[in-house]
Design a binder for these strands. Structure first.
Lengths: 166, 166
DNA sequence: ATTGATAATCTCAACGTTGAGATAACAGCA
DNA sequence: TGCTGTTATCTCAACGTTGAGATTATCAAT
């Protein structure tokens, strides 16, 4: 019926009736949902001894297919963080034995980051539970509405030029 | 037609056909959109000499109505950050003369944070441009689809219990 | 009044990211 | 071969948030 964003819109309507703040009804909700989902996922991964970003890197490598290796730059773009952050993350995952740095034969500037067997086993074990947990968070929407929502978000994402993971 | 998340779903379908990763089609997109929108807003506010969080605090105070004063705790919950972060933000806004701390008469544990006249003038000047900028980011969706999207996001937000800004 | 529980804010050390700069390697071309 | 511009990664200081703990005040019950 009414959520936190509706209340914010109501406040603006009262204080600045000259303004139509409808865009906040979408952007504000995307922002709030993103934070709330992050909290849930953080709890989920913590229960499995992982940080959210750890799973993120491992999953990116896993879904790229054998030999489960990507360059630091590719991980960089996939995670949408800066290069310093990825260097740090790779360091820590390597220290835990979940990935290893392999020199790139073709391009000696590049480093290939490869899942170790332990890393692959871990991500394959957790990903199913992770998807089930995400499904739980979306359980309130009917299957039809889930598709509608995914379609609308896809169109919006495309309008931002987010059309490729590479 | 296809965005970055569709590609990710395609990778999972190839690598783990036993898994139906549909929830990522919603949660992954919300996450990516949130980051992309944040970047846009950061650029917008920078062009107006503001940080995103600065506008956020000022706008929260402004839309609460006269006397444009809230407790630190209320700002805390509105911004969805921890108490240490809000203390820091209030400090810096006060140093810039955009807000001031006022002792709460009713509850001496509380601090009321009030917009200064300069702060009020600033937020009133920028908020209209901000809404127009957000509208620009959503221009690719027809008015009907905007409403559909807002409705779906509202339902989802409610299912997370996000039903009040207080 | 006193006690104990709860609440509001601030403090601060630990931590991770940012973003600019350094380094090394590649690619195209004269 | 040497030059120039570009690309990939790492380094590191600056910065902001987190989250636990300290402080002070309020409230309820006795």
């Amino acid at each position: 019926m009414s959520d936190a964003v509706d209340q914010i819109l109501g406040q603006w309507a009262r204080e600045r009736p000259d303004l139509d703040a409808w865009p906040m009804g979408i952007i504000g909700r995307i922002n709030r949902l993103s934070r709330l989902v992050d909290r849930e996922l953080k709890d989920f991964f913590a229960a499995h001894g992982l940080e959210h970003w750890e799973f993120d890197v491992l999953a990116t490598l896993r879904r790229s297919g054998p030999p489960y290796a990507l360059t630091a730059g590719a991980l960089n773009r996939a995670a949408m963080v800066t290069s310093g952050a990825i260097t740090n993350r790779i360091d820590r995952l390597a220290a835990k034995g979940l990935v290893e740095r392999v020199p790139d034969e073709q391009d000696r500037r590049s480093v290939r980051v490869r899942l170790t067997e332990r890393g692959r086993a871990l991500v394959d074990e957790v990903v199913g539970l992770h998807v089930a947990n995400e499904a739980r968070l979306l359980a309130s929407l009917s299957p039809d509405r889930r598709m509608e929502l995914a379609d609308l978000l896809r169109d919006l994402l495309e309008s931002f030029g987010d059309t490729s993971i590479e």
